[in-house]
Simulated assay, not measured.
Amino acid sequence: MLIKDKTLAEVMLKKQLKASRQLQQDLIDIRNQISEQEYIEYRRATGYIVAEIFEKIIKPICQDHPELTPTELKVALTDN
């Protein structure tokens, strides 16, 4: 179990979801400010980070505390 305490797990889950959304927003914000090649590299790095946050933090918390799983993630978690 990644985080036993449900209250703390909920706090950390919300923070990691917010961080993931911010990274995705950064892609939108930077898109027209850098070259295509820079964007491709930046998008790849961002995708890696978002995937790691999901696989190593969000997914384990949701598996340990299914009642905390946001509706929009329920499908993603059942497919993996």
Rank of each mutant, 00 (worst) to 15 (best):
L2H: 09
L2G: 11
I3P: 03
I3L: 09
I3Q: 05
I3H: 04
I3Y: 01
K4Q: 14
K4F: 10
D5G: 06
D5C: 08
K6N: 10
L8V: 01
L8C: 02
L8H: 03
L8M: 08
A9V: 02
E10C: 10
E10S: 14
E10F: 03
V11S: 15
V11P: 09
M12A: 11
L13A: 07
K14G: 08
K15S: 11
Q16P: 00
Q16C: 10
K18W: 07
K18S: 12
A19N: 05
A19S: 08
A19D: 03
R21N: 11
R21S: 11
R21Q: 14
Q22S: 09
L23R: 07
Q24L: 08
Q24I: 01
Q25D: 06
D26E: 10
D26G: 11
D26L: 10
I28E: 04
D29K: 12
I30V: 15
I30G: 12
I30L: 15
R31K: 15
N32L: 13
N32S: 14
Q33V: 06
Q33A: 11
Q33S: 12
S35L: 02
S35D: 01
Q37F: 03
Q37M: 12
E38N: 15
Y39V: 00
Y39Q: 01
I40C: 12
E41Y: 02
Y42W: 05
R43S: 07
R43D: 04
R43H: 03
R43K: 09
R44N: 06
R44F: 02
R44M: 07
R44H: 05
A45N: 04
T46V: 09
T46M: 08
Y48W: 00
Y48E: 04
Y48I: 00
V50W: 03
V50K: 07
A51H: 08
E52I: 13
E52V: 14
E55R: 13
K56L: 14
I57H: 08
I57Q: 14
I57W: 06
I57V: 15
Q63T: 00
Q63W: 02
D64V: 05
D64H: 08
D64G: 13
P66A: 06
P66S: 05
P66L: 07
P66V: 06
E67N: 07
E67M: 08
L68Y: 01
L68D: 00
T69P: 02
P70Y: 06
P70L: 09
T71Y: 15
T71G: 14
E72R: 10
E72Q: 11
L73N: 12
L73I: 04
K74W: 02
K74H: 05
K74Y: 01
V75S: 13
A76Y: 09
A76M: 12
L77W: 05
L77D: 09
T78I: 12
D79A: 11
N80P: 01
